[in-house]
């Protein structure tokens, strides 16, 4: 497949909203001509006018700028998403998404089902290249390097980004081989290196004590929670810069979920984590920053406490308090 060409050179925007929103100012929001959205001062606090703003823009198929809290501007971002659009065929799934993911901290993506959280997450390590119908516009940067630039080596990119999926997907091989998979594909043969990485990653994933005596067993025989931690271990074995977690706990019971949340807290600092979750409590417990997405738009992005306790936008408040979505 020649995804690279397909993705790289695409510039046209079939969706009307994307075209005529230029120069238009939605109440309270600045158009996308300015890359950095208006500061907090410029944006009014929660009021009736924003209510119309987001919903109206959405119903007209327009993009608008994210309400980004001031606190975010001071952070060092390891991953920058810049005016990112994405289409599945002719359906636009992401509209001018822009955000910076702070280094070494946990950022959560929340939003109603189907709003594009997974799509955005999968765009970061270009997993969407595998979907033939996808087209994109805009770019992302990892440590300043363009992700969608013409010269990007997708394989290298994915090695720098670990990913854990909603459903545990261990490979049909032994626990050990699962963990060292990313080293195997790099051609590492040295048993000492492999053993060391396996132990370190399993410890990192909080699984070492449970499986150290059965490393040669098939990974498919682990429980769901263990499998998910194995997948986390597999993702961190390659020592990535960023870890993407797409609803990692949705298939697990509360106890397994708790362990994974603890794990996320432990991994914080070593890795930058971007996590999608449907669970508000989880987002509050585990994340430092939260972005609220709605129908392909990034609506509000700020420190988790602020977003949940004092959301600036009415729409965010509606969602986090469970009034819709």
């Amino acid at each position: 497949m020649d995804e690279e060409e397909k993705m790289g050179e695409d510039t046209q925007t079939p969706v009307e909203g994307a075209e005529h929103e230029a120069n238009e100012v939605v109440a309270g929001f600045v158009s996308d001509q300015e890359p950095v959205p208006a500061s907090t001062e410029a944006a009014p606090t929660t009021s009736g006018s924003q209510l119309g703003g987001v919903y109206e823009a959405v119903s007209e198929g327009r993009a608008f700028d994210t309400f980004t809290h001031d606190a975010m501007l001071e952070k060092d971002d390891i991953l920058e998403i810049e005016q990112f659009d994405l289409w599945y065929g002719t359906n636009q799934a992401l509209y001018k998404n822009s955000m910076g993911v702070p280094e070494g901290e946990v950022t959560a993506l929340i939003g109603p089902s189907g709003c594009g959280k997974s799509t955005l997450l999968r765009s970061v390590n270009r997993m969407n290249d595998l979907v033939a119908s996808v087209r994109i516009q805009g770019d992302m940067r990892l440590n300043g390097d363009s992700i969608y630039g013409a010269g990007t080596d997708v394989i290298e990119l994915r090695k720098r980004i670990g990913m854990v999926f909603q459903k545990p997907n261990p490979f049909p091989m032994s626990i050990y081989e699962n963990i060292v998979y990313s080293l195997r594909i790099d051609g590492v043969r040295d048993k000492n290196v492999l053993d060391e990485v396996a132990e370190k990653s399993l410890r990192g994933a909080g699984l070492w004590e449970e499986v150290k005596d059965r490393l040669e067993d098939s990974a498919l025989r682990l429980s769901g929670g263990q499998q998910q931690r194995l997948c986390i271990g597999r993702a961190i074995a390659g020592e990535p810069d960023v870890l993407l977690l797409d609803e990692p706990c949705s298939a697990l019971d509360p106890i397994a979920t708790g362990r994974i949340e603890d794990l996320i807290t432990e991994l914080k600092g070593t890795y930058t984590i971007l996590i999608v979750t449907h669970n508000m409590q989880q987002a509050q417990r585990a994340s430092d920053y939260t972005a609220f997405m709605y129908l392909g738009r990034l609506v509000e992005f700020g420190p988790t406490q602020d977003l949940f306790v004092r959301p600036r936008l009415k729409e965010t408040e509606d969602y986090v308090t469970g009034r819709f979505g």
Binding site: M127, L130, N169, S182, R184, I185, G238
Partner: peptide
Amino acid sequence: PNSMREGSYACGASKWQTIRRIVLP
């Protein structure tokens, strides 16, 4: 299952590596 292929790609495997190590077995 596609989830296995995706898991492999996400680890930075190339297409052929994915086929050889995951899909074919």
